[in-house]
């Protein structure tokens, strides 16, 4: 299986590991960057490496520590992907791990395209994006309780009389 992180070009991989001290991902995904350096990394990739298109942000909730996750507790893993434009389109991916009640700086000031994608992740997984200009739910109704893609979301949570 080709892993997501394997798509990083050599120069990006080098940047991540040498300058941003990215750790190897215990689950085999893209390298893990510390939350505090996340914004700086995105800015550098956009301005100096021509990764100017926001590809995706995907969050996943891990309820219990994975087998070899060095004692990390319950967490949310947020993966980012940026695309470069022009000849030989490339992808730069990295991951940020936050605790379930933690927040992550938003990328909306850098990439306008991040707006709805971050709202979706907030809606379904419950990641808080610090400084998001419009932090409302995107898909579910405004009065929804909880975040349904969390592993601890009870399937029969009552949100309306008919559900």
């Amino acid at each position: 299986m080709k892993l997501l992180g394997a798509e990083n070009s050599e120069e990006v991989q080098k940047l991540l590991i040498e300058q941003f001290e990215a750790m190897e991902n215990s689950l085999g995904g893209p390298p893990v960057v510390a939350v505090v350096r996340h914004l700086e990394l995105a800015k550098k990739l956009r301005d100096e490496y021509q990764y100017r298109i926001f590809g995706f942000v995907v969050a996943a909730h891990y309820p219990a520590p994975a087998k070899d996750a060095n004692g990390v507790g319950e967490l949310i893993r947020v993966s980012y992907g940026l695309r470069s434009v022009g000849k030989g389109t490339k992808l730069a991916t990295w991951q940020v791990c936050i605790p379930v009640d933690g927040a992550i700086p938003t990328l909306v000031p850098l990439f306008a395209g991040a707006d709805w994608q971050e709202r979706e992740q907030f809606d379904l997984v419950g990641v808080r994006f610090d400084g998001h200009p419009d932090p409302r739910r995107l898909m579910l109704s405004e009065d929804w309780q909880g975040h349904p893609l969390r592993k601890d979301y009870a399937i029969d949570t009552k949100v309306h009389p008919w559900r």
Binding site: L140, P148, Y153, I155, P161, W162, R163
Partner: peptide, 13 residues
Amino acid sequence: RNIYSVVPGIDTF
């Protein structure tokens, strides 16, 4: 029917 976002039949409303 058991998905969080789907109404189990329109005759509920």
